[in-house]
């Protein structure tokens, strides 16, 4: 099942692309309102986590019993006490604010409009997906991303309509965290970050890179754009969130330890995403060429 790690030819160049983008991000700290919000969220999350993690009592020591140790390793969650606190904060916010607001959003905004907003978010995230796939050395995936971006930004009215899927360029997920994984970067321990949800050290790093790769974070200042940027971010979060309320409710109802359930499901899903990225050896020529 698992493919060898060294299956890419274009890694060094691709890597430098990502690095250049990151540097660009570093050179303009906090200049762009959108990125400031998102990176700020990440910084708050990780700062809190690291300062708490520094205390030994916040870390679960490996158990002595060999079977318990096997469970401990499988969970890959040494910072569980901190992560559970973070999860508690997130779920408190979920029940008291996010869930009611998300429900109201889904009730007030008609489905076609919500779909368009989802499309918009997906399309505008495409450059990140593109650079991630380039970085992972997957030209076919990157080509699909590029075509999706171009088609949906033009024919799809700046991203509101997903035309590309019907033209043979279906959506797939990719992000810098997956690219790092395809390079063989280990995930590091599991993290639960408020606002970001399930993560690992590697994927949190990937998230920061993703913010650097998002063009929306580089739009010039100005009241109109600032408003638009906020609207875009808030609508995006609500849209992405409101469609998952039922799933979250179900997990809370059906599992005895929702925290552990989410941890396991997320880790497996992530591993399978890494696997499918690694095993994607499709040729660069599009289907219609053959």
């Amino acid at each position: 099942m698992s493919a060898p790690l060294g299956d890419s030819d274009s890694r060094p160049e691709a890597g430098s692309t990502v690095r250049t983008e990151t540097k660009r991000r570093e050179l303009r700290p906090g200049q762009r309102p959108g990125s400031r919000v998102l990176v700020g969220r990440l910084l708050i999350g990780s700062t809190v986590l690291l300062s708490l993690g520094a205390c030994a009592s916040w870390r679960n020591p490996p158990p002595k019993d060999p079977e318990a140790l096997a469970d401990y390793k499988e969970a890959n969650d040494p910072y569980e006490p901190v992560n559970r606190k973070m999860y508690g904060i997130q779920m408190w916010a979920y029940h008291n604010a996010l869930r009611p607001v998300g429900k109201a959003w889904a009730w007030a905004v008609p489905k076609p409009i919500r779909n368009s907003i989802d499309n918009l978010n997906q399309t505008w995230y495409m450059p990140t997906v593109f650079f991630s796939d380039v970085g992972a050395g997957k030209p076919r995936r990157a080509g699909d991303d590029f075509m999706r971006y171009v088609i949906n930004m033009t024919l799809g009215a700046a991203g509101f309509i997903d035309v590309a899927t019907s033209l043979g360029y279906p959506h797939h997920d990719s992000d810098p965290g997956l690219t790092l994984a395809s390079w063989g970067v280990p995930s590091g321990p599991y993290l639960f970050l408020p606002g970001l949800g399930p993560n690992t050290f590697r994927d949190a790093g990937g998230y920061a890179i993703a913010q650097g790769l998002s063009p929306i974070n580089y739009v010039p200042r100005g009241y109109g754009l600032l408003t638009f940027n906020w609207a875009y971010n808030i609508a995006g979060v609500l849209g992405g969130f409101s469609s998952h309320i039922d799933e979250i409710d179900q997990v809370e109802q059906d599992s005895l330890d929702p925290y552990a359930f989410i941890r396991s499901a997320w880790q497996q899903n992530r591993a399978s995403q890494v696997e499918s990225l690694r095993n994607d050896h499709r040729a660069t020529v599009p289907d219609w060429y053959n």
Partner: peptide, 20 residues
């Protein structure tokens, strides 16, 4: 589904609950 084994997830849920 989506790379997630239902029985493995359920086992993690139960074993974590039991361990705690």
């Amino acid at each position: 589904g989506e790379g997630t084994s239902l029985r493995l997830t359920q086992r993690q849920d139960y074993s974590s609950y039991l361990a705690r």
